[in-house]
Design a protein around this nucleic acid. Sequence first.
DNA 1: TCAAAAGTGTTATCCTTACACCCATGT
DNA 2: ACATGGGTGTAAGGATAACACTTTTGA
Lengths: 317, 317
Amino acid sequence: MARSAVPTPQEAHEPANAAVDLVAVLVAVTEGEPRVMTLEGGRALPSGPFETGHRSLQSGLRAWVERQTHHPLGYVEQLYTFADRDRAGGEAGRRTIAISYLGLTRENDVPDEAGAGWRGWYDYFPWEDRRSGVPAILREAIGPALARWSGYAPTEAAQRERLQRAAIHFGLDGAPWNEELVLQRYELLYEAGLVPEAREAAKDNFVAGRPMAGDHRRILATGIARLRAKIKYRPVVFELMQPAFTLYQLQRSVEALAGLLVHKQNFRRLVEQQELVEETGATTSETGGRPARLYRFRHQVLAERAAAGTKLPLTRS
Amino acid sequence: MARSAVPTPQEAHEPANAAVDLVAVLVAVTEGEPRVMTLEGGRALPSGPFETGHRSLQSGLRAWVERQTHHPLGYVEQLYTFADRDRAGGEAGRRTIAISYLGLTRENDVPDEAGAGWRGWYDYFPWEDRRSGVPAILREAIGPALARWSGYAPTEAAQRERLQRAAIHFGLDGAPWNEELVLQRYELLYEAGLVPEAREAAKDNFVAGRPMAGDHRRILATGIARLRAKIKYRPVVFELMQPAFTLYQLQRSVEALAGLLVHKQNFRRLVEQQELVEETGATTSETGGRPARLYRFRHQVLAERAAAGTKLPLTRS
DNA sequence: TCAAAAGTGTTATCCTTACACCCATGT
DNA sequence: ACATGGGTGTAAGGATAACACTTTTGA
């Protein structure tokens, strides 16, 4: 939100003649690492204009992604629609709107042309991976930089407010870490001038992570946040798994997405109790220890349950 | 999803020159009824084109809503972006995209001009209100009509599939009711030709509910669904309450939104335990029995907690 | 005095969290 | 034998769901 320029008065009140871009956050998990499909050597997400020939937004997106990456698109859901003024190239009276989508797929072929390729998403957000503890960059660079930035606020109240916001979003000063706040954290870094995409970036104290063109990194953050939230209440991880997998592989995928370690047995109990998987009967010994049972996703659950959704104390009757 | 026409070949591959509409689902709760702001005597949602003078999508939306309804807009969040071909008026090479928003507000003044006004949202979705039991329209009209529609499927497998879908979405045949599936239910009725908006509507067996222009009712369904989901994990109900309220009024608002009755004491325990409210010290006897304590929302919780978000069995470390 | 709503006490059950330990394979 | 991952049992604590009953007002 925010981050917009002042309108030039003469163009007010004209219906915007908008160019519509479709942008994809296409995710896969391989070898326990979450990856995102990129173009231009990792500097951009797959995208392209919505064309009159496209039957719908989704089919337009599919067309673009498949054209650019030669990778089929499986599960797709809309993420968010952006229209910041800075996005626009120039041309008075014409603005660019970006409609973004999240796509989940199994990584199989590597496109390797036009700079297309999979990148680990923590290259872009190194502070989001807590699987091996609190990342050094957070303690050593981001924390201090946010503290400094808080100090720049004009009033003391504003300073406290900044500090509190930083603490809550980044889990500083004993605040709990909430892995879903990916976008808020990125926005906060942007506001603090700590990412190169920000126009008033303080050139000397980048915390960065790998930047992207335009607001693509912001869109990526939106996608990660959505996916992290969604794996908790909808069986979407399976879109990222091979047809047969071990429970530990499943766990590692979840951990990769969440950026957190989960408790082995409790995780298994959860999966079991929700009847999300069934044994294939086969085992694999490629995992490097005792051979593990292979499971497959029970596709029927999608039909059986339309999702739980409790949390309201209902009266029965 | 679906519901799109075939592209005429000659217009393929031209970047769409899109008109962008902003549409608002503006919600309030009064006297225990959820209401939505409408125009044209209830046939449309407030909306207008995104203009070049608008600083951002949100500010454009605010401008339109305030111009059309003279009602200020408080809490706002983006809902979804639609671009079905049927929405377009005609003009080859030009399509209309609707970016929809959910707005929450306290109903105070009644606009009463240009056909603007609040309408109970169950006028549009009578089957969604279960506060006084399973609505007659569901048992007597929708259920049988969906059964008939299932019978029209070509193969027996397809018939079973339709029946199961109807049962799960509408809680038929002993399936549990899930109040969040508002959009899916509307889409199913649309697909079955049971709402007047559908082009192949069977004129004789409407189940209807009050229709709206274009796909506004679909957008409204999206808004209701989002709100029903959101009240469970984010304290958004308070946006709809007066500054001071009794616990029972709060409960009635939640019930109004969910279309379900909740358990009084358990509801109170939930509210209390999450420390969402605090006593004002005052009481009111306008509720018609023993005077009730008045409470206010503890705005601090918004800063304190950035949301819960558990559900993954984490390892502690 | 009675209807209507406010407000409280208590129990059984289940889910979550946190323990710690044994099993089978490859090197 | 030992490292590595696979796989299991169980107990404490807290949140939920379900009971029903008392209190205070206005009519």
